[in-house]
Simulated assay, not measured.
Amino acid sequence: MKAAVLVEPGKPLEIENLNISKPGPHEVLIRTVACGLCHSDLHFIDGAYPHPLPAVPGHEAAGIVEAVGSEVRTVKPGDAVVTCLSAFCGHCEFCVTGRMALCLGGETRRGKGEDPRLTREDGTPVNQMLNLSAFAEMMLIHEHACTAIDPEMPLDRAAVIGCAVTTGAGTVFNACKVTPGETVAVVGCGGVGLATINAAKIAGAGRIIAADPLPEKRELAMKMGATDTVDALANDAAAQIVEMTKGGVDFAIEAVGRPASAQLAVDSLRRGGTATVLGMMPLTEKVGLSAMDLLSGKKLQGAIMGMNHFPVDMPRLVDFYMRGLLDLDTMIAERIPIEQINDGFDKMRAGHTARSVIVFDQ
């Protein structure tokens, strides 16, 4: 099969022909139809986050089940599925207390003594990234890393549900539990930020303020449901948000991965408000609350993958799209073949587009 391989950080991905193993007892073989380019992939490609190499990145995908292992009960051949990097075991403390996004998922990967899922043609192993490795024509994953969806759902749109939408919408619905009338600020209007804005609109937020330095991103945010926008790099960005909401927002959500963006989120809060950091910051960075923030009852939290319950959340998000509530069409800027993947990431580095989606030949 054809796949995009990360051989060395900071270098372009290389298109190679790889071998993929047969499904084990709890594994699912999926023919990849579409995969979004996510900034999380870029962190590994550029070397900001470490990973054993060579590896196949990609984690925001949708496809069709080709075959299943002997113990698989959740999907069957022919099913349309969306994948999710937060593969869960189903019986650890995090899973049984409803925090499955925190599961370390060790049992969802093959052990040291087992054959690797991916190999080069000479038999050398290729590492699977984030349980998926979706920049490839096929995926071999644990059944708890995907969920079946409505077969009528267009899979190029379904792919972005796998990360950007699950993260953004999950944060609104699960981590923040936004209720009608509450105010929300979103810092960063890339794929995750736009999905957060759209979900806040669905949740009935009274005011949704989008903060981004690029005018075209702020325009996209208005299409996705923002009621107001500010330039995130303006010296008085936080003051503008506090002024327009007469005291600050109930929830401020950082969707960039920069300390300054997290600080803007904190500074935009009202008394008792909550700031949620979604972006992958440099590993040495720290963010926090001042003594006055704490005395004001403000909170700061992370929300990995939106603290999702993806086997339940993803079919609901698909339903939202099919009913015209969730706007995935505006979010997708272009559809490209896998051979243009490096160009897609160059556009992401420039920051001027929303989501690029790889569509595989069918």
Score class of each variant (00 low, 15 high):
Ala4Lys: 11
Ala4Arg: 08
Val7Gln: 14
Glu8Trp: 02
Glu8Ser: 14
Pro12Gly: 04
Glu14Ile: 14
Glu16Cys: 10
Ser21Met: 12
His26Gln: 14
Thr32Lys: 05
Asp41Met: 07
Asp41Ala: 10
Phe44Leu: 13
Ile45Trp: 02
Pro52Lys: 11
Leu53Lys: 10
Gly58Trp: 12
Ala62Asp: 05
Val65Lys: 09
Val68Tyr: 03
Glu71Met: 12
Gly78Lys: 11
Asp79Gln: 09
Phe88Thr: 11
Cys89Thr: 12
Phe94Trp: 13
Phe94Cys: 11
Cys95Ala: 07
Thr97Arg: 12
Arg99Ser: 13
Met100Trp: 00
Gly105Met: 06
Gly106Gln: 14
Thr108Arg: 06
Gly113Met: 06
Gly113Arg: 03
Glu114Arg: 03
Asp115Tyr: 01
Thr119Tyr: 04
Asp122Leu: 04
Gly123Val: 08
Thr124Tyr: 03
Pro125Thr: 08
Leu130Arg: 08
Asn131Ile: 02
Ser133Gln: 10
His142Lys: 06
Ala145Val: 02
Ala145Pro: 02
Cys146Leu: 13
Thr147Pro: 05
Met153Ser: 00
Pro154His: 03
Leu155Asp: 02
Ala159His: 02
Gly162Ala: 15
Thr166Glu: 15
Ala169Trp: 08
Gly170Ala: 13
Thr171Lys: 04
Asn174Trp: 10
Cys176Ala: 15
Lys177Leu: 05
Lys177Arg: 15
Thr179Ser: 14
Gly181Arg: 01
Val184His: 04
Ala185Gln: 08
Cys189His: 03
Gly190Asn: 06
Val192Leu: 11
Asn198Phe: 07
Ala199Leu: 09
Ile202Gln: 03
Gly206Met: 04
Gly206Ile: 00
Ala210Leu: 05
Glu216Gln: 15
Lys217His: 07
Met224Val: 08
Asp228Tyr: 01
Ala232Gln: 05
Asp236Ser: 06
Ala237Ser: 10
Ala238Cys: 11
Ala239Val: 14
Val242Asp: 00
Gly247Ala: 03
Gly247Arg: 05
Phe251Asn: 06
Ala252Lys: 06
Ile253Arg: 02
Gly257Ala: 09
Arg270His: 08
Thr274Pro: 02
Thr274Ala: 04
Ala275His: 12
Ala275Trp: 09
Val277Met: 15
Leu283His: 13
Val287Gly: 09
Val287Thr: 15
Gly288Ala: 10
Ser296Trp: 13
Lys298Ile: 08
Lys299Leu: 14
Ala303Ile: 06
Met305Thr: 11
Asn308Lys: 05
Phe310Met: 05
Leu317Arg: 00
Phe320Ala: 12
Arg323Gly: 00
Met331Pro: 02
Ala333Lys: 10
Pro337Phe: 12
Ile338Phe: 07
Ile338Lys: 10
Gln340Tyr: 09
Gly344Asn: 09
Asp346Met: 12
Ala350Val: 09
Thr353Pro: 00
Ala354Tyr: 03
Arg355Tyr: 10
Ser356Lys: 07
Val359His: 05
